[in-house]
Amino acid sequence: MASYEVTISSDGQITLPAELRREWSLKEGDALEFYRGSDGQICLRPRNLPASALFGLLAHLTPDPTYPTDDDAIGAELAARDDATRSKRRKPRAA
Rank of each mutant, 00 (worst) to 15 (best):
F55P: 01
R21N: 07
S3K: 12
P65N: 08
L49G: 11
R22D: 12
V6T: 04
D64F: 07
R93Q: 12
D71G: 09
F34A: 01
A84P: 00
P92Q: 04
E77W: 05
F55Q: 12
I14A: 01
R36P: 00
D72L: 11
D83V: 05
A95E: 11
P17M: 12
E77R: 14
S10G: 15
S25V: 08
D82K: 12
W24D: 10
P46E: 04
A84F: 13
A79I: 10
L16Q: 04
R45T: 09
G56V: 06
A80T: 06
R21Y: 04
K27D: 12
T15K: 07
F34L: 13
F34G: 00
N48M: 00
S87N: 14
P46K: 03
R89K: 15
E33L: 09
A80L: 11
D82N: 15
T7Q: 09
S87I: 14
L57A: 13
S25D: 10
L49A: 11
C43Y: 03
A18Q: 03
Y35N: 05
A73F: 06
V6K: 03
R86C: 13
T62A: 13
H60I: 04
D72C: 01
E5M: 13
N48W: 02
T15A: 13
R86Y: 14
S52A: 02
S38P: 12
F34K: 09
T66M: 08
T15E: 02
P92I: 05
L57I: 04
M1V: 13
Y67F: 15
S10K: 01
L16E: 06
T15W: 00
N48P: 02
A51R: 11
G75Q: 12
A94H: 07
S52H: 03
Q13F: 03
L78C: 11
S9G: 07
D30L: 06
C43N: 14
L32S: 05
Y35R: 05
L78I: 11
E28T: 14
L78W: 00
E28C: 00
G56T: 02
A18C: 04
E19C: 03
P68H: 04
Y67Q: 08
L58G: 10
D30C: 04
K27A: 15
